[in-house]
C-alpha cells in the first residue's frame, strides 16, 4: 500500500503572522521523513515566492531562501495560483525555478487528487 498523498495549501503572505512559516516547517518536516507533500500557493500565499526578501529587520529568516532549499528536500514543483499572480502583478521571472502556475481547473484537480489536505 502506498503512503497517502498530502497537499499542503498555503494562503498567507510570508511575514506578519506565522502561518506561512508554519506551512514551510510542516513541508520540511514531512519531507525530512521521506513524505514530501505537494505544495500549492493560493491568494496572498504567492507573495512568499518573491525574490530579494530581507527579513533581518524583524529578526527572522528570508522565507524565499528557505523555499529555495525545497528541491534538496525532494520537493521540486511548487503549484502557484495563476490568478493570484496576475492580481499581484507578478511574472514567472519573480518565481523560483520549480514554480508552476495553475488555473482554477488545475487547482480543483489538485484538491480532489490528494488523500489529505493541510491548510495554512
Amino acid at each position: 500500500m502506498s503512503a497517502p498523498s498530502v497537499l499542503l495549501v498555503t494562503r498567507h503572505a510570508p511575514y506578519g503572522a506565522s502561518l506561512a512559516r508554519s506551512a514551510l516547517d510542516a513541508a520540511l518536516a514531512a519531507a525530512a521523513f521521506d513524505r514530501p507533500p505537494t505544495l500549492l500557493f493560493l491568494g496572498d500565499g504567492v507573495l512568499q515566492l518573491l525574490p530579494g526578501q530581507d527579513a533581518s529587520g524583524i529578526g527572522t529568516r528570508s522565507h524565499r531562501r528557505v523555499l529555495d532549499s525545497l528541491p534538496l528536500y525532494g520537493i521540486d514543483t511548487l503549484y502557484v495560483d495563476s490568478q493570484a499572480l496576475a492580481g499581484h502583478d507578478l511574472t514567472a521571472a519573480d518565481l523560483p525555478p520549480g514554480a508552476r502556475p495553475v488555473d482554477d481547473a488545475a487547482i480543483r484537480a489538485l484538491l480532489a487528487g490528494h488523500d489529505h489536505i493541510l491548510g495554512f
Partner: peptide, 8 residues
C-alpha cells in the same frame, strides 16, 4: 538557504 539542513 538561511537554515540548517536536515540529514536528507
Amino acid at each position: 538557504f538561511e537554515s540548517s539542513p536536515a540529514m536528507r
